[in-house]
């Protein structure tokens, strides 16, 4: 058998067990009754092996409401730094913001997201970023269900060959389409809020029967019935 697994399991910190315990509880069936964590990360770049998260921002969405107070924003202290990406997110290595260690950030983040569905724009990138960070700290991967507003948005467009759907829709395009202010673009929390509002509008357009249906809607539509 796998020689390391049992040993490693024992070393997991209490906050991880607490996070994992949360998944014994089933998610509500109705979309309105679910709490969605809409989030975004700012990173030093796009490479999972080399680049690091600088900031995580998230808001909780419950029945169409977002409590400002209950949002999540941490800045992470990182050794790796990339001057080019700093131009985008404006996070300098020696900025004034208070910063915490990666492990501390993960701990807070897991405590915040619990077993809620994670919503993000091209969310798998952020999930993979967090998973890479978890692995560096000897922890397993995220267990949450995810929803990608990029995929969901595509489903709101008409099914027709007439419209040439793009492969990917940038968050900027969504913001424009739904006339959301792009003022805080490229701060993790600002992007999370833009994504949250876009998500609400998309859900309204898609009118899913329940949570399962909404998650299924991310897959490309099936033809030939």
């Amino acid at each position: 058998m796998w020689p390391f697994s049992s040993k490693k399991q024992l070393e997991l910190p209490p906050f991880w067990w607490e996070y994992e315990d949360g998944f014994h509880q089933k998610l509500p069936d109705k979309v309105q009754e679910n709490t969605f964590v809409v989030w975004d990360t700012e990173t030093t770049g796009f490479r999972l092996d080399r680049d690091r998260m600088l900031c995580i921002g998230a808001v909780k969405l419950m029945n169409g409401s977002i409590a400002v107070k209950d949002s999540f924003e941490v800045y992470i202290h990182q050794e790796h730094y990339d001057a080019e990406s700093a131009e985008i997110h404006g996070i300098l290595r020696k900025g004034k913001r208070e910063r915490i260690s990666e492990l501390e950030a993960l701990k807070l983040f897991l405590g915040y997201i619990k077993n809620h569905v994670l919503v993000g724009h091209h969310v798998m990138f952020d999930v993979n970023m967090v998973n890479a960070a978890l692995r560096r700290n000897g922890l397993p991967k995220l267990k949450n269900k995810t929803l990608d507003t990029g995929l969901l948005y595509k489903r709101t467009l008409l099914i027709s060959n007439v419209l040439q759907k793009k492969e990917k829709y940038a968050l900027d395009e969504l913001a424009e389409k739904f006339s959301i202010s792009k003022k805080d673009r490229h701060t993790a929390l600002g992007d999370a809020l833009i994504t949250a509002i876009a998500f609400l509008r998309i859900v309204e357009k898609l009118t899913p029967r329940n949570l399962k249906d909404l998650i299924k809607k991310q897959d490309p539509p099936k033809f030939g019935l």
């Binding site: 169409g64 409401s65 977002i66 409590a67 400002v68 107070k69 809020l193 509002i197 609400l200 309204e204």
Partner: peptide, 11 residues
């Protein structure tokens, strides 16, 4: 005050 605000979306 702004910190205490809730943002509400209405269809």
């Amino acid at each position: 005050l702004s910190y205490e605000v809730t943002i509400v979306h209405k269809e």
